[in-house]
Structure formats: structure tokens, C-alpha cells
Simulated scan of single mutants.
Amino acid sequence: MRSLRRRHPLLISVLLCMCALVVARPAVAEGDHGGTGAHGIAGSSVRVARLYEEAALATRQYELGRREAEAQQAEARRLEGLLTRERARTEVLHEDLGRIARAHYRAGGGLPYTAQMLLADDPEELMRGQRAVSQADTAVDNAVVKSRRAEARLAADEAEAAAKWQKLERWNAELAETRRAIEKKLEAARWTLQGQADASVAAGACRGATRLDQLHRGSTRAWVAPVETYELSASFGSGGERWAHRHTGQDFAVPIGTPVRAVGAGRVVRVSCGGAFGIEIVIRHANGYYTQYAHLAAVTVDRGERVDPGQWIGQSGTTGNSTGPHLHFEVRVTPELGSGIDPVPWLLRHGVEL
């Protein structure tokens, strides 16, 4: 950028004016050269799609690790509870042993066994008492040994569970750091793609489709939502300063580069850029309705191409008359603006609840 400033001051002034329309956007990602040609847009589009997948995978791994760590914590707490109960049981056995010993002493246990027999009124009764005491002593001793073994085993299990939990915590920390690094790269790549899309729209030079065949996600369902993960924002018919009358579709708040899907099978009848909708796609479906996907940063299909439900047809952006990254989605009875109907109940009738 510094070399451009030295050699082309007029060009830099124009670029700065354009940048004023894009408030506080991150710098170009390392390795991207910001080209606005088909090759530059295609490279950024593929990079964003790849990083999107990597970020999603890292998030899934992190969530799995977090759930496993929670399970290990729960197991450690369970074992601690068992150990606590076992210790209480051992204390009771120790108290029982003390009572038996005291009773034994009061019954003459402090005297030699021969002396007890000489002094006893009924030697047979004494022998029966001695056998009972001996059996009780043996039972208590066995119980104490068993309790101590159980305590040692539970303590070892508890230590193992705690060690596994600590290992999982370290692994989760590493996963979280990996996820943050990927998301940082993804954010930079997203704005690089958006910058190229803005330049293409401003020049009125719509580029061809960027093929992401290896990343397409088909669906076993006949109808799907246009994006997988989203927050609903401006709804159909709502008012706003940026619309001449009323909002003509349903907005899905999603980051730049989010894969946009065909909601159902159909044929692409329009791929265009420029105007209020920026980069847009219109698809005609077999039931006679049309769906529009607007403010895109890139497209992955060409006009005349057939698409399947859930197929990636583009990547979301914020081109055209847009206040921020989102997908503008419309359902129309003709391919033209002004024939739109509320997309939410239309999708619901096709089994898609937003």
C-alpha cells in the first residue's frame, strides 16, 4: 500500500473515498493481494469457505471436549461422594469395634482366658461368649480391611478421573486457542472478499461463479432455510429509512462469507451485481415461485444452472444498499422486485420453521 501511495497519489485519494463507505473494516489477510479480478475473488472465496469449515470443525471439537470435561468432572464428584460415604461407614465400624472391645473388657476380657474359666460360674456359657466375641472381632476386622481396600480403590479412581479432567482442560485450552486463531484469519479473509466484491459492484463488472463443488452440502429434505445458523433481523413489511416503502424480504444476520443455500430445487434465472441489492441470485422453483438471495459477496452458480435443495449457491456479504453483513432473502411470484410475499409463512408451509 505504501508503494501505491508514492506512485499513484490520485488513485490513493479515490481509494480513500471508497474506503470511507466501509467503516473500520479489518486489513487484508496475509497472503491475499486484494485483487479484484476473477482469480482474486475466486481465491478469496475458496479461502473463506475453507476457513469457515475449519472454524466450524474447531468449534465442534471444542464443544465435544468441553462436554467430555464436564462428564469427567461429574465422575470425579460421584467418586468423591462414594469415598465420603465409605469413610463414614469405616468410622461406624471403628466405633463398633471400640464398643465390642470395651464390652469384652468389662466381661473379663482383661484377664487371661484360663483365669476367666476358673472364676466363671458356668464355664460352658463363658466359652460360648468367647466364641461370639471372637466371631464379632473377626467380622469387624474383615469389614475394616474391606473398607480400607474400597477406600484405596475409590481414591485411586478419583485421582484418575481428576487427572483425565485436567488433561481435558489443557486440551480444551489448546482447542480454544486454535479456534481463536482460525476465526481471526477468517475475519480478515471475509473482509478481503467483501472488499473485492465491493470493487466489482462499483465497477459494474460481475464475475463468474466461483466453484466450490467440494464444499457443497446437499440435503435429504425438499426445502431448507437459506443459511444454517443465523439470527433473524429485518422482517417482511417492516419500515426503515433505507427502503422506499416497506422491507420486501426477510433478513438473516450472518457473517460475511457464510454459505448461502438454495432453499429448494430449481433453476438459476438471474445472477447480477449493482443496484440496491448488490450481488444477487434469483432461482425459479417448480411450484412457480421465485427466491432471491441478495447482498452477497460471491456466487458459486451461473445463470441457467440447476440447483438442489441445500446446495451452496453463494456466500453472504454486505454489497449494495446494506448496513452490515446479512442475507436478504425474498420469495416472489415473479422474478421481479415488487411481487414479493412474506418468506416466513411460505417456508413454514414447506416444512421449514425459522
Rank of each mutant, 00 (worst) to 15 (best):
H285K: 13
E160D: 14
E169L: 15
G278V: 07
V331Q: 06
E86M: 07
W191K: 12
E305V: 10
A49T: 13
R47D: 06
R242V: 05
R349Y: 06
G195A: 11
G195I: 11
V145K: 12
E231V: 01
L119A: 10
F329G: 00
A58W: 02
S147M: 03
R67F: 08
D137F: 15
G237K: 13
S45W: 05
H247W: 03
K146N: 09
D251Y: 04
D342I: 02
R270L: 14
R89P: 08
P123S: 04
G304F: 09
G310A: 02
A181Y: 08
P335H: 08
D342C: 11
G338Y: 05
A152D: 14
V201P: 06
L82G: 00
Y289C: 01
Y289W: 13
S339D: 00
A163P: 03
A203Q: 06
G310C: 11
L186S: 04
P343E: 05
T319Q: 10
W223T: 09
W191I: 01
S134F: 14
A286E: 11
G195H: 13
K167Q: 15
V331A: 07
L186D: 00
L118W: 08
Q214C: 03
N321M: 02
S272H: 03
E336I: 01
P335Q: 15
T323D: 04
L212D: 12
V352R: 00
L354F: 12
T220Y: 01
L64R: 12
P26R: 08
V271W: 00
Q292E: 15
A276D: 11
P255N: 08
G81K: 00
D137M: 10
S272D: 00
V14F: 13
F277W: 12
V282G: 02
H247T: 02
A103C: 01
R87D: 01
N321C: 04
V268T: 07
H326R: 10
E353H: 08
R7K: 13
G237H: 13
Q292I: 04
G338I: 04
V299F: 07
V144K: 02
R153S: 13
C17M: 13
Y293W: 10
V227G: 09
R7L: 14
H295P: 11
A253F: 03
A58I: 05
V140Q: 15
L348N: 15
R25F: 05
R303N: 14
V46A: 15
E228I: 04
I41C: 01
S147G: 11
V201E: 12
R87P: 04
R217V: 15
V268A: 11
G240R: 04
V263C: 07
D302M: 11
L82H: 05
R99C: 03
H285W: 09
G31R: 02
A276N: 01
T138C: 00
L16A: 15
A74Y: 04
V140N: 08
R50N: 09
E187L: 10
P9N: 05
A120I: 01
E228G: 04
A161D: 12
L186M: 01
H245E: 11
